[in-house]
């Protein structure tokens, strides 16, 4: 059957007229219609979201007197609305990237330990605990971060600032607990389980034949991991990290609770303050006027585009050496 006749059959089945698809058995037809229906509903939902976001964002963008991409102001409800996303984009990317840098090595270390080093009984228990970490609601992370972690981080920040202040990242005039670094560490803990459990799954799929090939060449355990495991799992690890980054970029409530929102862009990661797209939306949407909501929705669109770019980059990295697995 060519694709043409298949397509005719499909439209026929959907429209309830014309030729039937397949053998015409009732179960088959119902199943075909329902799967097709699900796919169409998905497309409709995405289209509806896109139309809604753009329709709400465009009037606000038109009224914006500042440059939407490069301005650091956020006064959309003023008589003369001025707002831009630079500060939000900076805070979002900075906190997420720091979280990724902190979380990825730890997560891969955990995954390698579970897959290759730990005794079998410990491995299953440990895997369970890691998965449990993913089940903690983000508002709990936010509470824990604010009540327990921020005060602790304040002294860490003071230490880093006093002893390593010559490193520009730890410099600046004021340091405190509610900084981008604290937000990044909380985010890192939140994305740890995703990265770790996906990496672990990938490592467990490394063919035993490759592990044995490395062992038979006289590889030590670390050399086996370097020769057979990490190269095989590389694309999986990149995907895992990108999924983690995606979660960190979009994470709202924990960041909103931990950060003391303050205006401005600074590379001093110990400085209290900073803001992200999601935290800004969560913190200000309730009080925002019509224009303010439009502006927030526009910033949400930008976050969506950033996430999209991250995903495409990840795919490009994975695809680059596809001929090698």
């Amino acid at each position: 059957m060519t694709s043409d006749t298949l397509e005719q059959g499909a439209t026929g089945a959907l429209g309830g007229r014309g030729r039937r698809l397949g053998t015409g058995r009732m179960g088959d037809r119902l199943f075909g219609i329902s799967t097709r229906g699900s796919a169409i509903v998905l497309l409709l939902i995405i289209a509806a979201i896109a139309v809604f976001l753009i329709a709400k964002a465009v009037p606000a963008l038109k009224a914006d007197k500042a440059n939407f991409l490069t301005s650091q102001e956020w006064n959309p409800d003023a008589a003369e609305p001025r707002f831009g996303i630079l500060q939000l984009a900076f805070g979002t990317l900075m906190s997420s990237l720091m979280a990724l840098i902190i979380a990825t090595p730890v997560a891969i270390g955990i995954a390698l330990f579970i897959a290759f080093y730990s005794p079998r009984r410990l491995a299953s228990g440990l895997g369970y605990v890691v998965d449990l970490l993913a089940a903690v609601p983000s508002v709990v992370y936010g509470l824990w971060g604010l009540q327990f972690f921020v005060p602790k981080m304040a002294s860490v920040a003071n230490f880093l600032h006093d002893d390593f202040g010559w490193i520009p990242l730890f410099g600046g005039d004021s340091v405190g607990g509610q900084s981008l670094l604290t937000a990044a560490v909380v985010l890192a803990i939140m994305i740890l389980p995703i990265i770790s459990s996906i990496s672990r799954e990938v490592f467990l799929q490394v063919p035993q034949a490759n592990v044995e090939a490395a062992l038979a060449l006289g590889a030590t355990r670390w050399e086996v991991i370097r020769m057979a495991v990490l190269p095989f799992g590389r694309s999986g690890m990149v995907s895992a990290a990108m999924l983690g980054l995606g979660r960190a970029l979009g994470e709202t409530i924990a960041v909103a609770m931990v950060l003391s929102t303050a205006a401005g862009i600074s590379l001093h990661i110990l400085r209290p303050g900073g803001n992200t797209f999601a935290a800004n939306i969560a913190n200000t949407f309730g009080m925002a006027g019509n224009m303010g909501r439009g502006a927030l929705i526009a910033s949400g669109l930008v976050l969506f585009v950033i996430t999209l770019i991250v995903n495409m980059l990840a795919r490009a990295i994975v695809a680059r050496r596809k001929e090698f697995v």
């Binding site: 063919p207 038979a216 006289g218 030590t220 095989f232 090698f324 697995v325």
Partner: peptide, 22 residues
Amino acid sequence: PVAVRRAIGMVFQRPNPFPTMS
């Protein structure tokens, strides 16, 4: 045992080149 395996080579039932290597 690692030193033993370096001195004694092995070829397996199914060809098992490292898939990620040239």
